[in-house]
Amino acid sequence: MIKISAHFVLTIAMGLVLSMADAYAAKKKKPVVVLKPAIVVAPNFEFSQAVVERDGLLQIMNTMTCDSSLRSVCQSQCRAPACEWPEPLCRDCLGTGSEVMREIFSRLSIEYHATDSIDSDELIRTLVARTIKLTRKSPYDVYNSSTDPDLGSHLQLLCGSPDGLVGVMYDEDHRPTHATLVACNTPQGWRVRVLERKIEPKLLNP
């Protein structure tokens, strides 16, 4: 079971510095955009995902607990300060046919880069209702053998820790469409980043 305990501290300064650095490197043309107030938010919650056997069924279950500062958000999303919910159907995810899953498990940090942070309201809403959540222990990973660098190495590169999750958006047929965020449990607390498919080829000597 993956357990990501997250105590968010208000790391305004650090958040600013990190986000600016990332964003500057990635989006040289418009570095000003990153200076949004959203980056200062640090959610206090616990999130875990595990495969459990319940009522004779193996299920991927997510668990989230919010502290007092986020209780109202959790209340609105889960109708309780803590909630547990099964992962939604992820169509074609168990197999090699989904080009999105293939890209996420094998090339996430090459194809995407982390940009802005995200506010806690939005994060919880996204986690609960709109995404498939992948961790390094996800049963959907049919791409990496036990000796390959797995999703954890991509998380490490994108948000600073191999422990975390990738949120993947899905369409109305429940097929994954793209990775939307990464959340890492770092020694400094949670780092949550929006992902953007933005890798710029650079002409060096035209």
């Binding site: 004779g56 069924l57 099964p86 159907l89 169509r91 074609d92 995810c93 168990l94």
Partner: peptide, 16 residues
């Protein structure tokens, strides 16, 4: 699908 009743639906049957 027995124990795998919530996991097998995520398999890409069309591919297999």
């Amino acid at each position: 699908m027995g124990r795998f009743g919530t996991l097998f639906p995520s398999l890409a049957l069309e591919e297999e």
